[in-house]
Design a protein around this nucleic acid. Structure first.
Lengths: 153, 153
DNA sequence: CTTTCTGCAAACGATTTGCAGCAGC
DNA sequence: GCTGCTGCAAATCGTTTGCAGAAAG
């Protein structure tokens, strides 16, 4: 998140987003603000159809274009779901490090947090496993696959 | 892998693939065999363009169609890369459990294996983290992100 | 022989883009 | 007021599909 471990206020979030856009000579327009609000409130990666369903008066093309801009500005991230639609979420330095739980039946993605010790163990193992490949690890992703409660009898 | 912890011979692989296809009333044709060979030899997830570049005389549509069939037969798996192309690899019960190292610059995906202890720790943590969501975990994916040796100075 | 597969070309659907007018700063 | 953004509609690109002939069992 923007600072410390708290959630940060909505104002802090928007200020930071505005700053990152400004550094790319981009403006923080109402459409972009709406996208950030929706992503922040969802708390999980959203598909474009989901985003469009949650915002009024923003056409697809603008949503696509601005999500791309937000990604370039380091404000958002594109994550690959199990289905055909791309998904978007706020960048981890705005929301905190987390992972995803993916339902293999309905494709829904939910955020989940894991113990810091495990994260550290994983990072150490990652370094060890890739050292001989000459690969420089900068981050990781963990997806848990399974069936969500709605998709079980 | 097919049995035990060894690599298994190529013959064993093809026999098993043929068996799985047969159980769906599907035939093990030369195009399908070529796809399995390419995926097995690559040892990492391949995009369709990559696959087509490695096989002679197989048109796109056949590749797409047969990769879909192989996925349905449990012989192959589709993995989401960081770029726009879908990637395919052999199923884990044929190749062994592994994870992916993804270069965020060129998008290349490489296989990597991590220590069993860590896998177990992760599985335990996954159960714990999702129990309260009513989510039934059936598997996991770990992607290590970074820069490959070719993409660094 | 019967059923499934192949190759082609046309169809599809998600995402991108050109352009004329509107809006941030 | 200059520069960048929006909305529309057309274009693009990966992927899927219908169909007639070839091939597997």
């Amino acid at each position: 998140m923007v600072s410390g471990s708290g959630t940060g206020t909505s104002d802090q979030l928007h200020e930071e987003v505005g700053r990152r856009l400004a550094s790319l000579d981009q403006r923080y327009t109402s459409a972009r603000r709406a996208l950030v609000v929706v992503l922040a409130e969802a708390g999980r990666p959203l598909t474009i159809p989901e985003v469009l369903g949650l915002i009024e008066g923003v056409p697809q093309s603008t949503a696509y274009r601005n999500l791309t801009v937000l990604v370039e500005a380091g404000v958002a991230r594109r994550v690959a779901g199990s289905d055909d639609h791309g998904r978007f979420e706020l960048a981890e330095d705005l929301t905190g490090h987390h992972h995803h739980v993916i339902c293999t039946t309905c494709g829904t993605v939910t955020d989940v947090h894991v113990a810091p010790r495990l994260e550290q163990a994983l990072e150490a193992a990652a370094e060890a496993a890739t050292a001989d490949l000459g690969f420089e690890v900068s981050g990781h992703t963990i997806d848990l696959l399974g069936t969500c409660c709605s998709c079980r009898g």
